[in-house]
Design a protein around this nucleic acid. Sequence first.
DNA 1: CGCGTCCTTGAACCGCGTCAAGCCAGGTGG
DNA 2: CCACCTGGCTTGACGCGGTTCAAGGACGCG
Lengths: 232, 232
Amino acid sequence: MNYKISCQDCANKQCFVQQYCFADWINRIDQSKNQAWYKRGQYIFREGDRVFGIYFIQQGKVKVVSTGLNNKEQVVRLATDGHVVGHRGYGAETYPIGAIALEDTIACFVENKLLYDAFMANPKFTYSLMMFYSIELRKTEIRLRHLAQMSIREKIANTLLYIKDIYGINEKENCLNVILNRQEIADIAGTTAEQVTRQLTDFEKEKLIAKLGKKIVLDDLEGLKKIIAAHS
Amino acid sequence: MNYKISCQDCANKQCFVQQYCFADWINRIDQSKNQAWYKRGQYIFREGDRVFGIYFIQQGKVKVVSTGLNNKEQVVRLATDGHVVGHRGYGAETYPIGAIALEDTIACFVENKLLYDAFMANPKFTYSLMMFYSIELRKTEIRLRHLAQMSIREKIANTLLYIKDIYGINEKENCLNVILNRQEIADIAGTTAEQVTRQLTDFEKEKLIAKLGKKIVLDDLEGLKKIIAAHS
DNA sequence: CGCGTCCTTGAACCGCGTCAAGCCAGGTGG
DNA sequence: CCACCTGGCTTGACGCGGTTCAAGGACGCG
């Protein structure tokens, strides 16, 4: 399965190109875009790679990480369908962060020069991307405060809710729509795998969540929200 | 001193409007912009205020803060001439963060509707703002990782360098171009005033910095950078 | 069945936040 | 000009929360 899905046939109606570019520009982008498949764990790009363009996630789940001391990963953001990753502006030569697929993912790559021309010709496209960044910035600033001020218990409750916000919940089983191990959750929360285990066990005892194999069932959303309520 | 400085006479050549709008649009914005003076400590806007437009800092120094538990402030960003504050998109009704002047500041306020029209008519203007957000996002993501992983010592060294990056250094005395008390530094670093005192004293003993009244002299930039080197 | 990987749990250590007391400098008033 | 006062800065002591280390358990896979 390695054929290219053309923009006309693309199921992702969130795509900024689809929504906001003029028809002839969708065609131009369609023709020169580069589409790639990534398996779970594969890098879409790494810290330090040169920036040649930006990636639109057509379908899948991606984490944006920043590698810190002794290879400790900090997840700075989770992304999914319709989101954009990797655009750090022409100012930056190389990526300050990396992007890794959390499950099988399809991303469309559009190269810098073409993008710039599209920005100049499609005001709504540029505007929508600007808004996207603006919203991401706001979210990141809030996460910043949380990481700085929350206790471990709060951080982990918060992380569960964050994952739910981005990837949603499986209707049938009421569990998080993505499978992450303890270390990966810790990397998002900004703590260690041991603490995640401890807190998840506590949450389970308090009937806030349940474990279903590797899946996490959110039984009591309100209860989790109450834990972080002090941080609004 | 409360007259309005017109865009033609404005000394700030970094301004996105000045740089990237067509002449007739500069005039339109000039006519309807609202210019305001703020003294140190005054709010430009508060958390929860309704969003009516965005502020361009003509001149001055501003901190963007987010009030957490028991009124603890976390500084999410420092801003200065030519920067933009307060634009959180039309999606958000109210400000999730507040902006406070760190010293006397002049800001130009442009209202949402006019802005939108300007975005649609001035591609380079929109583009430049998009880039601005993109860069801010990158910086915030990096700060996120730092807050999550650095020790207090590293956080404070890092904070000093951050302040220097934004506000620069006084050529004559080699000291930071802004006066902040211990608590304000702590709010940026994500720690307490006591820890700031301790570390500054340590840094002074190690000849990395010196205290000149309320000013902080950065004697050994390389030494400070070395402290945080492990976090690249 | 045995091995590897991830999860769990306990215990020890330590960094950091908190509290409290003392200090210093600048400002004010007698 | 000095005494006092106030607010920020400094320093020490203490206790808690969280990281780290280590050992044991559960589960899946060959």
